[in-house]
């Protein structure tokens, strides 16, 4: 099995052929795999030590001078520089790419202090930012390349450790969700490591005669509202993310649906609480983030759809 961080590190090294690319790290280059870039292009790699506020402000300076800075650290520590990112990078729409590793619960052993469950909300609220949460190593690699070619600031959250490979295609673009399967009864919108869980949920639901669509929203911002609307025609929606249900993918989808085509939404995610130490599978079970939980949420959404129908038929 491959890892997202490794794919990111290798893709970054490849993108390093572009001499404008510079990489900044805060004493985590081995964990974030920016060490690959560092060994190929040492003159364009800067390690500021354990100083994330300095890291992001320095990235801003490099971007103002025309460089394409990629700043990397763990997701939880990227938020430590949030105000710096907001006031300089976001406000001036600078070309800084933030790759935040060990996102969600994937720093499982380290516990709540290291588990970033709020970062999508924090970065989604920043004007000019694109927010990415890739779902497998190959997609991570492609989106790393796309991000370095794109204009404007990007925040990408990556899982730590070995992850399932979902894709053989390389056809990914920022802002274009990937439709894995269409379904006619319910649509599951997922991002990051919840995408393979959503695929598992689809298989479970199929056995019960429910046809569930699965869409990989690797780009949470800008949100492709057309895809949301199209999938909402099933009349029942489930969102799944390894993030708080406040402000993340679920919120983004609900905001869109409320405007465009209101329908029942069930959100699978962390329920306004912190993580804890455990194995990743134990944590997924504890916080309700397994395929089974997504399948159950789908049935709840279906039930609400039916209630609404019965209500209308009864009149």
């Amino acid at each position: 099995m491959a890892t997202m961080t490794d794919s990111f590190g290798k893709a970054l090294m490849e993108s390093g052929k572009n001499e404008k690319l510079v990489v900044i790290n805060a004493d985590l280059s081995n964990s974030t795999r920016t060490s690959y870039f560092a060994s190929s292009y040492p003159e364009r790699f800067f390690n500021v030590g354990i100083a994330e506020q300095d890291e992001f402000s320095m990235a801003a300076g490099l971007a103002i001078a025309g460089k394409i800075p990629v700043a990397s650290t763990y997701a939880i520590f990227a938020s430590r520089g949030w105000e710096q990112i907001r006031n300089t990078i976001s406000r001036a729409n600078l070309n800084v790419k933030i790759f935040a590793t060990h996102a969600g619960l994937t720093d499982f052993g380290d516990g709540s202090s290291h588990q970033a469950l709020e970062d999508i909300a924090l970065f989604r609220a920043l004007p000019n930012f694109s927010v990415l949460a890739p779902s497998d190593p190959r997609q991570t690699s492609i989106l790393t390349e796309r991000a370095s070619e794109s204009k404007g600031p990007v925040y990408a959250r990556l899982a730590r450790g070995e992850t399932e490979s979902i894709y053989s295609t390389e056809d990914f673009a920022i802002g274009k969700p990937n439709i894995i399967e269409d379904g006619k009864d319910v649509s599951i919108f997922a991002c990051g490591l919840m995408v393979p869980k959503a695929i598992e949920a689809r298989r479970m639901l199929k056995k019960d005669g429910v046809d569930a669509g699965v869409i990989d929203f690797h780009t949470i911002k800008p949100l492709d509202e057309k895809t949301v609307e199209r999938a909402a025609k099933t009349g029942a929606i489930v969102t799944a993310e390894e993030h708080s249900v406040i402000g993340g993918l679920g919120s983004a989808i609900a905001e869109c649906l409320a405007k465009k085509s209101p329908c029942p939404v069930e959100m699978v995610g962390i329920k306004d609480e912190f993580g804890t130490s455990g194995s990743l599978e134990e944590l997924y079970e504890h916080f309700g983030l397994t395929g089974k939980h997504i399948a159950n949420a789908s049935k709840r959404a279906l039930g609400r759809k039916d209630t609404k129908r019965k209500f209308w038929l009864g009149r």
Binding site: V22, E43, R44, F46, Q53, D54, S57, M58, A59, A60, G61, L62, A63, I64, A65, G66, K67, P69, E83, Q84, N87, T88, R91, A92
Partner: peptide, 30 residues
């Protein structure tokens, strides 16, 4: 904010030397 001769948006304190370092490193690379 930015533009019209203003190189760097500021207003929140403590961040200017970091940005200066980034500009200075870019000058060195170029």
């Amino acid at each position: 904010l930015f533009g019209e001769g203003i190189e760097v948006p500021t207003g929140s304190l403590g961040q200017g030397i970091s940005v200066a370092n980034g500009l200075a490193l870019a000058k060195r690379l170029d």
